[in-house]
């Protein structure tokens, strides 16, 4: 799953470590989410989105889960 986290971090001059500390996970988890290897749970996705003052859909790209989209 693609995310806008790297761009949002860059915009706010935020390191992965700082974001991780703020949302209660390790830096490795943020790295995995950013690279699309790990899909964040709903509560974590919510925390990340809230941290940036956005909605979940604005941070995470759900287009591959849209009805009719190829899996």
């Amino acid at each position: 799953m693609e995310t806008k986290i790297p761009a949002l971090r860059k915009e706010r001059k935020l390191s992965q470590e700082e974001l991780a500390l703020a949302v209660g996970v390790t830096r490795q988890t943020i790295t995995s989410i950013e690279s699309g290897r790990y899909i964040a749970s709903l509560p974590l996705a919510y925390k990340i989105a809230r941290y940036f003052g956005l909605t979940i859909e604005e941070v995470f790209d759900f287009s591959e889960y849209e009805e009719g989209a190829e899996r």
């Binding site: 991780a20 500390l21 209660g24 996970v25 390790t26 490795q28 790990y38």
Partner: peptide, 16 residues
């Protein structure tokens, strides 16, 4: 406090 938060994150990290 910061060390505590880091340690907590490490122990309760959902991916781990």
């Amino acid at each position: 406090q910061q060390e505590l938060q880091k340690w907590y994150n490490k122990n309760y990290d959902e991916r781990s």
